[in-house]
């Protein structure tokens, strides 16, 4: 069971791998690019509202957001980096 899941993850490679594969391969395909971009902002929105308590914005009851955590482990690292970068950026404007 665990192994199967592992393979699944490798196959899809998470959103990051997906993006990378895509950028190399299909960069000229405008429609796919647009879809991917939208899909990726949705991903960020989703992580923000489910895991928001990482940034001190509690949205889902923490007991339940912990339930979702295993499924977003690969995204968390990149996501948090991006959020912090944006936060620094916003703060640097004041």
């Amino acid at each position: 069971m665990a192994k199967k899941k592992n393979e699944k993850k490798k196959k899809s490679g998470g959103i990051v791998g997906f993006l990378r594969d895509f950028t190399y391969g299909m960069a000229t395909h405008g429609m796919a690019r647009h879809a991917l971009k939208t899909r990726s902002s949705m991903e960020h929105l989703f992580i923000l509202i489910t895991m928001g308590d990482m940034l001190g914005i509690p949205i889902l009851p923490p007991y339940y957001s912990l339930r979702l955590l295993p499924h977003v482990v690969p995204q968390i690292t990149t996501w948090k980096r991006r959020m912090l970068r944006e936060k620094d950026f916003v703060e640097s404007m004041y």
């Binding site: 069971m1 990482m54 509690p58 339940y64 955590l69 968390i76």
Partner: peptide, 30 residues
């Protein structure tokens, strides 16, 4: 998490999130 990703150890970022979650008052309530 460990079995899903075949990890040896939980990444630090994730571990600190898990640990911090129990400090929230809403954690107990939920």
């Amino acid at each position: 998490i460990i079995s899903m990703y075949g990890m040896e150890k939980i990444p630090e970022e994730i571990e600190s999130y898990i640990r911090a979650s129990s400090a929230e008052p809403a954690m107990e309530e939920s």
